[in-house]
Each structure stands twice: as structure tokens, then as C-alpha cells.
Amino acid sequence: MRNIILSRSTASDIDSQVNKVLRGLGNPEPPLRLEDVRELLKLDRGYYSSTDDSFLRETISKLTVAGTQVLKRPGLLLEAVRKFDLRALYLPDRKRILLDQAQPDAKQRWNEAHEIGHSILPWHEDLMLGDHEQSLTPGCHAQIEAEANYAAGQLLFLQSRFRVAANDSTPRLDSIRALKGRFGNTYTTTFWRFIEDSHKDVPMIGLIGSHPRFPKEANGAIFRHVVESPAYRLMFDSLSLDRLRSEILTYCQYRKAGPLGSCEVSITDKRGERHVFLFESFSNTYDCLTLATYQRPHARVVGF
């Protein structure tokens, strides 16, 4: 799945909502404490289990909006939680976030921030309370999820605080690892935020998925997400997944964790001109992250 880049007006509206929260917290130092955010917004947090659904079933059965029970058959949502492998839920009428307790702590942090993102965007409330004509449209669902992800990223990375720190570093995987520790978020979420929100003039591609030498999917697919920077989208067309995979396999080592190698790759822009990108890959055993960053125009060979 390729990332959705929000329009400038939508991003600005979300930035304003996030800024209100951070100002209310006194513009805190990193890492952000989500318990402070919940206290400020008067949000409750609970946990559920996809294997033991008693708590979730009771909670959903009591869910009402304007005095009307939302679900006559609570089991339908329970089935959806399992079918779509949901990791978190936000119940607007109760201002309650529910997290899957089976997820690792680091992932719960992102899932919780994502649901907080839904809670602070006023136009999401109607969609989450049963506006089925819109909410069941795949394009609409993808858009609101992208908006909640953007809000979560702006919260967890403290808006301009991360952008300034990222812009002071070189666009390399080593820089992203350093920023991960400073802001207290996962390598994968720091990687994503770095590509979308820093070095605005540098075309970048980020690939997130399984190890190219040990694909987890039965069909051999290795990418769950392809993250393209705004500068990349402006100058280049999206590369096919097969092309990306074949380039990585030219240098990718067989080790299970750590740096997997790097290589310079030539990519043609929308005008038909070639440019050099540096591809480098790293495995943290759960995900393989590949960062491709623009280096220079491809040198032309002039005949004599």
C-alpha cells in the first residue's frame, strides 16, 4: 500500500488540532507521555483481547448514541475485529480508547496515538458513529485512516521539534535510528515520519515489509507499505513493486538482523532524465526497512 499524502488544507487543519493539544501540555519535551494527553483530553483507555472477547462484548453491547443502541448484534463488531485484525478501537460516545492487549508495548503506543488522532479531529466523529454511506466507502476509509495517522505522527513527534531535528541530520538510516531513541517511538514509525516530514527538497522512497531474502507472505510479496516523500511524488512516477524488489535483491544479504547492504540505483524522472538514488536496507527482525534517497543526476557520457 502506498502512502496517502494529505492536501495542504487538510494537513493544516490537523496541525491546528495537534498544536492545541501540545500547547495545552505546555509544549513538552520528547518523548511525549500519552497518559498526559489522555488526561488533558479526558480520554479513558482500556484493553481487549481478540481471544477472550468477554470485555469487548460487554462494552459494545452497551454502546449507545443519543440514547439509541448502535449495534443490535454486538457480535458483528467482534467478528470485524478478528476479520480485519484490528489493533485498537475508539468509542466516541464514551471517549474511550480500547487497545488489543496482545500487541507489544511499542506498537500499542502508536495504536493509542492513532485513536487519539481520531478523537481530536471533529469531522471524524460523525464517520465513526455510523455514517455508513460514507464510512463504508474504501476511499473514504483510507482517507480518514491517513488523517488519523498524520495526527498521530504530529503528536508523537511533537510537530516541528522532530522536523528540525531530522533536517539537522543526513537522510540516512543511521539518522533515523538516532531519532527513534530521542522521541521514544518505534523504528518503523520514525522511518515513516522522517520520509514524509523532513528534507522537503530531497526525493525519498521508504519500503516497509518482510526480509527480502525471507518473505513471510505465501505469494512472495515483501512490501506492506511504500512511503514516497512529497518531493519524490513531484518529480518521479511510482516504481513497480517488482522493480523495487529486484533492485534490493542485487545487494541484500542473508543475515536476519542488522544492516543488509546498500547500492546506487538509477531512476528515470517524469521528464525522461536519469538520477542516482542510494538504496540501503536494515532488518530489525520484525520489519525490513529500505530507504532510497536522491543523490545526484546521472552522469551523461559524451562521445568524442
Results as ranks from 00 to 15, higher is better:
234 L>N: 15
236 F>L: 08
237 D>K: 12
238 S>R: 13
238 S>K: 13
238 S>V: 13
239 L>T: 09
239 L>Y: 10
240 S>F: 13
241 L>R: 12
242 D>I: 00
244 L>M: 12
246 S>W: 12
246 S>M: 14
246 S>E: 15
246 S>V: 13
247 E>M: 06
247 E>K: 06
247 E>P: 06
247 E>Q: 10
248 I>G: 04
248 I>K: 01
248 I>C: 08
248 I>P: 06
249 L>W: 07
249 L>F: 10
249 L>R: 09
250 T>Q: 12
250 T>D: 04
251 Y>F: 15
252 C>P: 09
252 C>R: 02
254 Y>E: 10
254 Y>C: 11
255 R>C: 01
256 K>Y: 12
256 K>H: 12
256 K>N: 11
257 A>D: 11
257 A>W: 12
258 G>Y: 00
258 G>C: 10
258 G>H: 03
259 P>F: 01
260 L>Q: 03
261 G>A: 04
262 S>M: 01
263 C>F: 13
263 C>A: 14
263 C>R: 14
264 E>R: 15
264 E>T: 14
264 E>M: 15
264 E>W: 12
265 V>K: 00
266 S>V: 10
266 S>P: 08
266 S>K: 08
267 I>T: 00
267 I>P: 05
267 I>Y: 02
268 T>F: 02
269 D>E: 08
269 D>A: 09
269 D>G: 09
271 R>Q: 15
271 R>W: 13
272 G>D: 09
272 G>T: 08
272 G>R: 08
273 E>Q: 14
273 E>T: 14
274 R>H: 07
274 R>G: 01
274 R>K: 06
274 R>V: 09
275 H>D: 05
276 V>W: 09
276 V>M: 07
277 F>V: 04
277 F>D: 08
277 F>S: 01
277 F>A: 02
279 F>N: 11
279 F>R: 04
279 F>C: 05
280 E>V: 03
280 E>S: 06
280 E>I: 10
280 E>L: 04
281 S>D: 02
281 S>C: 03
282 F>D: 00
282 F>Q: 03
283 S>P: 00
285 T>M: 09
285 T>A: 07
287 D>G: 07
287 D>F: 07
288 C>V: 05
289 L>E: 05
289 L>C: 05
289 L>W: 09
289 L>N: 05
290 T>A: 00
290 T>V: 05
